[in-house]
């Protein structure tokens, strides 16, 4: 299990979180510490053990294909930091 090559800048970028240099140093140190601790799991023999994604063994929980009312446009946009013409406005996306 690798943790020493933990690159906080790279990961913070993936998570889209801008960090100040101070934060970067502090979080980087603390996360190194935590990653060192979770290395503990290496001790476990997990050969043949199924991964567990859910706490209860349900399957096939589905809904019928039925249309339910949507919410009005005003309600959809009510919390938008910026909106115009019924759209959520964002800085120009360069595709």
């Amino acid at each position: 299990m690798a943790d020493t090559d933990f690159d906080i800048q790279y990961v913070a970028n993936l998570a889209r979180i801008a960090l100040t240099p101070d934060e970067e140093a502090k979080l980087g140190y603390q996360l190194g510490d935590i990653l060192g601790y979770v290395k503990k799991l290496e001790e476990l023999d997990v050969t043949g053990v199924e991964p567990m994604a859910h706490a209860v063994p349900l399957a096939n929980v589905l809904r019928a294909d039925e249309v339910r009312p949507s919410i009005p446009q005003e309600a959809a946009l009510a919390n938008a930091p910026k909106q115009a013409n019924g759209l959520f406005i964002v800085p120009k996306i360069v595709e």
Binding site: M1, A2, V38, L41, L44, V46, V49, E50, P51
Partner: peptide, 13 residues
């Protein structure tokens, strides 16, 4: 695999 998958297996245990 090293972290998440292993943790999911530990969860099973």
């Amino acid at each position: 695999d090293a972290y998440y998958l292993r943790a999911q297996k530990a969860r099973t245990l």
